[in-house]
Amino acid sequence: MIVAQNLTKHYRKKIAVEDISFKVETGKVTGFLGPNGAGKSTTMRLMLGLDSGQGKTTFDDKPLAAYTQPSKIVGILLEAKAFHPTRSAQNHLGILAAAGGIPSSRVLEVLDIVGLADVAKKGPGKFSLGMAQRLGIAAAILGQPKYLLLDEPANGLDPEGIAWLRSFIKDYAAQGNAVFVSSHLLSEMSQMADNIVVIGKGKLIASTSVADMLAGNGHASVTVRSSDSAKLEAVLKQQSFTYSKQSGSFQVNGVKTDDIGKAAFTAGVPILELAGHNTSLEEAFLEITSGAQEYKAHTAHTDSKAKKGKS
């Protein structure tokens, strides 16, 4: 397990990251979300000791510096195009393999895994962003590390690449490893992450499971219908649920189907329909990060109003 404790980083008077603590469990994919400028990359760099700051991060109870071969513990992808443009992809990985004490035979293996075997001898300077990301992923998995830290790995990937990445990350975690991945693609994140860490303006907003985040969001609701609407409404009132009437059914907010099912069963109310409507991760994310956005764009509507105001 990765345990990050009290990570803090200030740039003069500006807070980049403040007192962030969370855990990344093995066997799971942990998504790392936050608006632009929230401090995601800084947090990852602090975890790896690339930036100076306060707090500590342990990997299986030990700091990264305590391992003789750190590349076999953590694989990283913090920036897509982190390579010399004229050094071949194979040589680039060969250098990383040598530094990590990894056999050079592994280089061709990982190039094959990420689908870059055909361009192994080419300089990556002319690689597309998607190919560069694949090379970055190859570098990350070179030492078959237990932990992967990936910063926006899906950037620039085509739909096929994204689908490959999703299944790769899920499989990697399922093998008893842990993947900590930041992404702006919330729909992707909802499909692959088990847990979520959300930060905003450098501070921790939430560290929870995706299921709990969606269920705990105010927009999650349950539709329930009974042949005895009056009795069902009485049960909902009795349980102090927040609900609204809709043609022949009730929409109950902020509860799970289980809660309503149990209450109706206990009261002997016949149920004809019981359906949960979870909110999307995007809605949940926008709700919990509202007010924590460092950079906020104006909508077209407010922009045109501003222009009118000026003229």
């Binding site: 690339l50 510096a65 990383l96 530094a99």
Partner: peptide, 18 residues
């Protein structure tokens, strides 16, 4: 200087103990 220019310094540092 190439390490800083092309940001490979992050790989170099994280692969070493210190």
């Amino acid at each position: 200087t190439h390490e800083y220019r092309y940001n490979t310094i992050m790989y170099t540092i994280t692969a070493a103990r210190s």
